[in-house]
């Protein structure tokens, strides 16, 4: 199913970069990389939430993914240039949005299950 395939792709990508010895990143750029990963995770979770609400749009999702990761890295770089840790703001907000979206997804999913259960009990009785 779609979700399982998507997770498989993510795991494949993870394994590819983790276990191949050739691909490395200089130590100084590590914080940008983790910020980009978090931005990607946030847009992915946002896309899933849009899907549960029925408002999913592929163009919005894909463009959001790409732009968020690039923007997060740019913000962190800008922060380092200016002397202020602007990456911290990006980190906090991305994490916050991930949590909010996750709870919305969870609520939709649970509501759907409860509606289904009450419908089945109503139909059964």
């Amino acid at each position: 199913m779609l979700a399982i395939l998507a997770v498989l792709c993510a795991v494949a990508g993870f394994a590819l970069t983790y276990f191949l010895p050739g691909i490395t990143v200089p130590f100084g750029d590590q914080e940008y990389l983790s910020l980009a990963a978090l931005a990607g995770l946030d847009s992915l979770v946002g896309g899933i939430r849009a899907g549960t609400e029925g408002k999913f749009q592929s163009t919005v999702f894909i463009s959001g993914f790409v732009m968020n990761t690039l923007l997060a890295v740019f913000l962190a770089y800008l922060g380092e240039r200016l002397g202020q840790d602007i990456g911290l703001a990006a980190l906090v907000l991305l994490g916050g949005r991930t949590f909010v979206n996750l709870s919305i997804i969870r609520r939709h999913w649970l509501e759907g299950r409860m509606i289904g259960q009450s419908a089945s009990t109503a139909g059964g009785s």
């Binding site: 997770v7 990508g13 590819l16 990607g40 992915l44």
Partner: peptide, 21 residues
């Protein structure tokens, strides 16, 4: 397809981060 590609990229980013850390 783009969803799969993006998931793979995300997994790759996470893998790189883990490895470098």
């Amino acid at each position: 397809i783009s969803l799969f590609i993006l998931c793979a990229i995300l997994g790759g980013l996470f893998g790189l981060s883990f490895k470098t850390q």
